[in-house]
Simulated assay, not measured.
Amino acid sequence: MLQSKQLRKYLLFLVLILFLAVEVPIIAVGQLAKPEPGDVIIVLGAKLIGHEPSTMLRLRLDEAAKLYQAGYAPFIIVSGAQGCDEVISEAAAMRNYLIAHGVPADRILLEDKSFNTQQNLANSLAIMREHGLQRAIIVSNASHIRRALVIAHNLGMEASGAPAPMANNAYLTTKQYVREGAAMLALVFKQP
């Protein structure tokens, strides 16, 4: 009985250490990352509601529009395919939103074939190369920036991060950070 109790305490301690080792860097990068001027802003897709961006995606798009208006980069790549429950591609909805918020249509490049972050960044890198663009600013919500930057680095993309705020919803924010922790662990174990 005593050994079983000690084992449970030990396992709980290991889980806590693993949780902190994974989540603290995600939180830190999401709070501390700063965009550096570049050639293109890449906005990673997220869920749509009908033809409209979800709250998380709107926060990303607002951050991208702000960076564009401040002169951080002359182009924006909007990246995201059409999910099975979406009426248009995420990229198309993002383009429409940015145009409605003052970004000229000829400054927006569409990447509408990707269904996950790896594909978002690989396909966006191909567009960058096609247009002679070297340095990217990746825009996503704070919980997602660390993983996006790790993937970009693994692809050989020169990139800085611009964390958009998280939704003002404790449940959704907690869910996103836990999801990113699991995704970071999967990324680490998938590395060659």
Rank of each mutant, 00 (worst) to 15 (best):
N123R: 10
V15I: 13
F189R: 12
I41D: 03
E52C: 07
K66E: 12
A159N: 05
N168T: 09
V15N: 00
K66L: 07
A100W: 14
N123K: 14
P192E: 15
G83F: 06
L109Q: 08
A164S: 12
N141V: 04
G181A: 07
I138D: 06
N123D: 14
L187F: 09
A136Y: 07
R8L: 13
L44D: 09
M56H: 01
I127P: 06
E36W: 00
I108K: 10
I145M: 02
N116Q: 01
G83Q: 08
F75C: 04
E36L: 13
V178C: 01
T173P: 03
A152K: 01
E180Y: 01
V150Y: 00
H153G: 12
R129V: 11
G80Q: 00
R95L: 13
V22A: 09
L187G: 13
A46T: 03
A21I: 05
L14R: 01
I27S: 08
E36F: 07
T55F: 05
K34G: 03
L155G: 10
H144N: 15
T55W: 04
A92C: 04
M166V: 02
L98F: 07
A93L: 12
V78F: 02
Q191A: 15
M184P: 12
K175Y: 06
R147D: 04
E130P: 08
G156M: 03
L12S: 12
I17P: 13
R60E: 02
A136D: 11
A162V: 08
A28R: 14
R135I: 11
H51T: 11
N169T: 10
G50I: 04
V150T: 14
L149F: 05
T117I: 06
N168F: 11
H51C: 05
I41N: 06
R95F: 12
G161N: 10
V22E: 11
A170W: 03
L109G: 13
D106A: 11
P163Q: 08
E158F: 06
R8D: 00
I49M: 10
F13P: 00
A46D: 06
V40K: 12
L133N: 10
A126H: 09
Y72S: 02
A100L: 14
V40T: 00
L2E: 12
G181P: 02
E36A: 13
L187S: 14
I108H: 05
P163V: 05
N168Q: 10
G83H: 03
Q119L: 11
M1I: 05
L185C: 13
A81I: 09
L14I: 07
V87R: 11
V139E: 11
L172W: 08
L32D: 07
L172V: 07
P74F: 01
S4I: 06
A167V: 10
A182V: 15
P35T: 08
Q82P: 01
A73K: 02
